[in-house]
Write a protein that binds this DNA or RNA. Structure first.
Length: 413
DNA sequence: TCTGGGGTCCTAGGACCC
DNA sequence: TCTGGGGTCCTAGGACCC
């Protein structure tokens, strides 16, 4: 087929790659004896975050509590997550796709987009459908994990394609053949349409992606917002979303939120939880080598109402003692008595890379920076979270709390 | 769904200004 | 000012994703 043919079929050629049951698949490559078994990767608070098709067949679903899974199928292999391992596989996935085109968007740990339009691909890669097939083959043979691959003229259609035949599907949607795929796609399954918009569409008797794109443009603009119009274009084969190369390298915020048990009205207990989140968010910021100068905090009530407050930080920082000191008064002002809370969280934003040179050479900030880098080393050596702010004490179990004093930190647990 | 955690982006409407 | 109109900026919070 000539290049002219292929650009008629694919004015833009966008591939979407999606790892099947990715975390569980990674676990199986680490331990091949698990192949063919119902494998479940557990996450926070003991719920399933990934599962093999064997586990799905037994009725296990994402989000199911581990104790329920054990009851439902005692033969299930339940593993804790190994996120370092998944990250390694993700990087290999990106690298394999990157052989065919430099335009690879590292969308998430188990997904990526690639622009394989002619003129973008490396010289000997072939036509789009051939490239999509090769990418899938390389991924599966080199990583030992199955992937679902979609090829279409836009990102949203490529997503439709990769979802269409899971697991291990290869679906190509050349221009002009969209209709049958859209007819088989529920409007709520479209990437970018969530529960709220899906319900609004159902009220208008729009239930499939095909019905959505059949509506006139005016109907979309009058009843919905800009992102939905973008989806309408994309689903009609008009590309408006670019493949963002290396877009993930400038992170805009870093967060730590935690639900705790039991829920409580106690001011001090809730502060201890928030304080623990402050420590956690700072630990992660230091790990990434970034600082922030603005903190968004929230308390979540039992009724899922959010009490929010924000705190400008006097400078860019990633040290918990500094942030806790500024957040504390704001917390005291925002706190409402008599409300039962179940979670707290903090998001650090206005992100900037950590300065190698501390700005304040004579004040405490330099010492704090050094102190926390030392703490990070201790945590690394002893398996993390060995040293805490005294204010977080209540948020950790009572068993390992023997406070001692450190300069600048006050009581440390 | 008796409801986790980490992110990003968009927008309605208030604040503010002339 | 018991008042009009119009524009821009900002932010709280909604919606969505994995």
């Amino acid at each position: 087929m000539s290049t002219a043919d292929s650009s008629a079929k694919y004015p833009r050629a966008i591939v979407h790659v999606d790892g099947d049951a990715f975390f569980a698949s990674c676990e199986i490559t680490k331990n091949p004896k698990l192949r063919g078994k119902p494998v479940v990767v557990g996450g926070m608070r003991g719920i399933a975050v990934a599962l093999t098709y064997e586990a799905k067949a037994l009725g296990v679903v994402r989000g199911m509590p581990v104790h329920e899974i054990r009851k439902l199928c005692p033969q299930a292999v339940i593993l804790p997550g190994d996120y370092d391992l998944y990250g390694i596989y993700a990087r290999r996935m990106y690298a394999i796709v990157g052989r065919y085109t430099p335009l690879v968007e590292e969308y998430s740990i188990d997904e990526c987009f690639a622009d394989v339009s002619s003129g973008q691909v490396t010289a000997d890669s072939g036509q789009p459908e051939e490239i999509a097939r090769k990418i899938k083959y390389d991924l599966e043979t080199e990583l030992g994990i199955s992937f679902s691959v979609g090829l279409a003229t836009t990102k949203v259609l490529a997503k439709v394609a990769s979802k269409h035949r899971k697991p291990s599907g290869l679906v190509c949607i050349p221009t002009g053949t969209e209709e049958e795929y859209l007819t088989n796609t529920g409007v709520g399954k479209i990437w970018g349409i969530g529960r709220a918009t899906a319900e609004a569409l159902y009220r208008e008797k729009v239930t499939t992606a095909q019905e959505f794109v059949s509506k006139p443009e005016r109907w979309i603009t009058e009843n919905f917002a800009k992102p939905h119009l973008m989806l309408w274009y994309e689903l009609r084969g008009i590309s408006v979303y670019d493949v963002h190369v290396g877009g993930g390298d400038i992170q805009k915020s870093v967060a730590a939120t935690r639900t705790f048990r039991p829920p409580t009205k106690e001011r001090a207990v809730i502060w201890a939880q928030l304080s623990k989140n402050i420590e956690e968010v700072c630990r992660r910021a230091r790990e990434k080598g970034i600082t922030g100068s603005y903190a968004y905090c929230f308390l979540k009530s039992q009724e899922f109402q959010y009490l929010r407050f924000e705190v400008p930080l006097t400078r860019h920082t990633n040290t918990p003692i500094e942030i806790a000191e500024l957040v504390r008064p704001a917390y005291e002002r925002a706190f409402r008595r008599g409300v039962e809370y179940r979670a707290t969280g903090i998001t650090l934003s206005n992100i900037r890379p950590e300065e190698i040179e501390q700005q304040d050479l004579f004040g405490t900030s330099r010492n704090l920076g050094e102190l926390f880098s030392t703490i990070d080393k201790i945590d690394h050596k002893y398996g993390g979270n060995t040293i805490h702010l005294g204010s977080s004490m209540g948020a950790y179990g009572a068993h390992h709390t023997r406070p001692f004093a450190l300069p600048f930190l006050g009581d440390v647990v």
